[in-house]
């Protein structure tokens, strides 16, 4: 199978280049990550992040034939050749397929991604109905792989100002939690021309999410909450 892979090692390369690989895959190499591991067994300099190899850790997000996705859950069988692999767009490249995710996590941290509840905790669990808990479905499952945020043109333009779909999905996860008491503060935190409102419902995020989540929908709900509290 033929691959064309983005290579850049700042230790020796002046500029990035695309390297071609033609590699015989074994029948057990079903996912793109299997193929990359096989390439790496021949060329150990190819650098990428990977860990769980089952789509829950979020390490091996990359741009695959022009679309963001996880290498470990992308079957090789459906890929057009040569398979063109690039690092996630919109973030600085450290080396090869490894990007610097500082900006991404800075935005995640900016939404205060933790439950805020200042009541003294009860002896047992706080109660939450199944319906209240169901509000978190579609939001808590995010794996922070950054496929969505780095597919978002609004994030490309304003990575320092726009929270981006992943961060906003988590903002919604806490706004939607019946146990959280900081809704007003959370909405204040997003009330500016950029942090939330740079989302123009382009919906690349929905298309890119390897977990089938819908950040645009969550962002819409946050905007509704903003409107509701002003009227």
């Amino acid at each position: 199978m033929r691959f064309s892979i983005y290579r850049y090692d700042p230790d020796k390369d002046d500029k990035p280049y695309m390297q071609d690989y033609d590699i015989a895959l074994e029948p057990s190499d079903r996912m793109l990550l299997d193929a990359l591991v096989r390439i790496k067994s021949v060329d150990d300099s190819l650098s990428l992040r990977r860990s769980c190899r089952e789509g829950v850790c979020g390490s091996d997000a990359m741009n695959i034939n022009g679309r963001n996705g996880l290498a470990c859950t992308t079957p090789v069988s459906g890929l057009r050749e040569p398979v063109e692999l690039r690092p996630l767009p919109g973030l600085p490249v450290i080396r090869d397929l490894i990007v610097d995710m500082t900006q991404f996590f800075k935005q995640y941290h900016s939404i205060k991604p933790y439950l805020i509840n200042n009541d003294p905790p009860p002896e047992t669990e706080r109660l939450q109905s199944p319906a209240e808990r169901a509000e978190l479905d579609g939001a808590y499952e995010c794996i922070l792989c950054a496929c969505c945020t780095t597919a978002c043109p609004s994030f490309w333009w304003n990575p320092d100002k726009f929270v981006g779909p992943a961060g906003l999905l988590q903002a919604y996860r806490f706004l939607a939690d019946s146990r959280d008491q900081a809704s007003a503060e959370r909405l204040d935190n997003l009330e500016d021309p950029y942090r939330l409102f740079r989302c123009h419902s382009i919906m690349n995020c929905v298309d890119a999410c390897p977990k089938g989540l819908n950040p645009t929908n969550a962002i819409g709900k946050i905007k509704d909450m903003m409107v509701k509290r002003t009227v």
Partner: peptide, 21 residues
Amino acid sequence: NEVVYELEHFGMPFDRLENGK
């Protein structure tokens, strides 16, 4: 029991029974 309740207080999204537990 104590450490699980603590996780719940930290915000862990456990599934719930009809009675909210």
